[in-house]
Simulated scan of single mutants.
Amino acid sequence: MKYILAFLTLLLTLPASAAQLTIELDHASKTWQTADLLKHPDVRTVQIINDVSYKRQMTYRAVPLAVLLPGLTPQNHVQAVALDGFAAELSAGPLLERTGAQAWLAVEDPAHPWPKLGDDKPSAGPFYLVWTDPQAGHISPEQWPFQMSAIKQLKTVAERFPALLPDPELAPDDPINQGFALFQKNCMACHRLNGAGDAQVGPDLNIPYSPTEYFGGDFLKRYIRDPQSLRHWPQAKMPAFAASVLPDSELDLLVGYLKHMAGRKQ
């Protein structure tokens, strides 16, 4: 028995294993190993003042994401896929910026693993998309995917999932279409709607019912602001969306889109 315990103790003290990240672009595909990224000529030590996942200051070895996405243009669209099924939909434009809000691929060193995200939870590794000066680009928490395993260039959300589209008669700048853009940015990483989407974390937001149909008054907005204030349980995963991340005006647009789609069930 003592030998088994000794072996288990040894396993727990071993460093995290190396990992790989696959980047699939239309014109190229490459799989990066942890060691290769840590030796990348552009790797830097970056300090994140207010890390979204760790809720404190963190320091990482990281590579500017733009250098890992050769040939992409700001009009392109990518999806960051996490090990747990989280699928963040990301416009390429912000990822390619070299000034202001800048995207970095933080790489977990197996010899120096990052802290756990909580009790009985892993770290944010092996790969984590972090941002320096995020307020300059109005970067939302859903644009900080962690435990990433792949980055894929895809068609836009509207092209891939027509079931998400508002009434085509609406003008492009209609508030409902503005709300649709916010839904893509803030909700699609965890939720589907009308069965459409790639996320596997949260429930569908229209089938069988839209939350606008069962949350009365302003309770839906309060729930989005702070889910734990209305439904408190330890296993809850939905983050709070503070006004600094999702201003009241944008929250109104998002809820407007959800109300509109409640009449467009598929």
Rank of each mutant, 00 (worst) to 15 (best):
H232L: 14
S29H: 14
D204T: 11
H40N: 09
G137Y: 13
D36Y: 01
Q200M: 15
T45N: 14
L83W: 08
S249C: 00
T59L: 03
P172S: 12
E24S: 12
V107Y: 00
A18E: 12
K116F: 08
P113G: 03
K259E: 13
D174I: 10
Q143P: 01
M1H: 10
A199H: 07
D26L: 09
Y128L: 06
Y214S: 12
D120G: 09
H232K: 13
Q79L: 12
D167A: 12
Q47L: 08
P166A: 03
D173L: 15
L83E: 14
A171M: 12
H40M: 00
P162Q: 13
A62K: 08
A262Y: 01
A80H: 11
D174G: 07
D226Q: 10
Y128R: 13
T9A: 14
N206D: 09
P168E: 12
K116I: 07
S53M: 13
S140N: 07
G216H: 06
P64S: 11
I139S: 11
L95W: 04
P122T: 12
M148R: 06
I207D: 10
I49P: 00
A101L: 05
L96A: 14
A189Q: 03
L25G: 14
L38Y: 02
A19Q: 08
G256P: 09
P247I: 14
R192D: 02
P239C: 04
V63E: 02
L182F: 02
R61W: 02
F183C: 15
D167P: 15
P162G: 09
A242S: 15
S140W: 04
F86M: 08
A88P: 02
E24I: 06
A171R: 13
S29F: 10
L154W: 09
P208C: 00
L90C: 03
Q57Y: 02
F7W: 15
Q147F: 09
M58R: 14
L11S: 12
L253D: 08
A124F: 04
A82R: 02
L253A: 11
M238T: 04
W233Y: 13
A158F: 02
Q79P: 02
R56I: 10
S210H: 08
W114K: 03
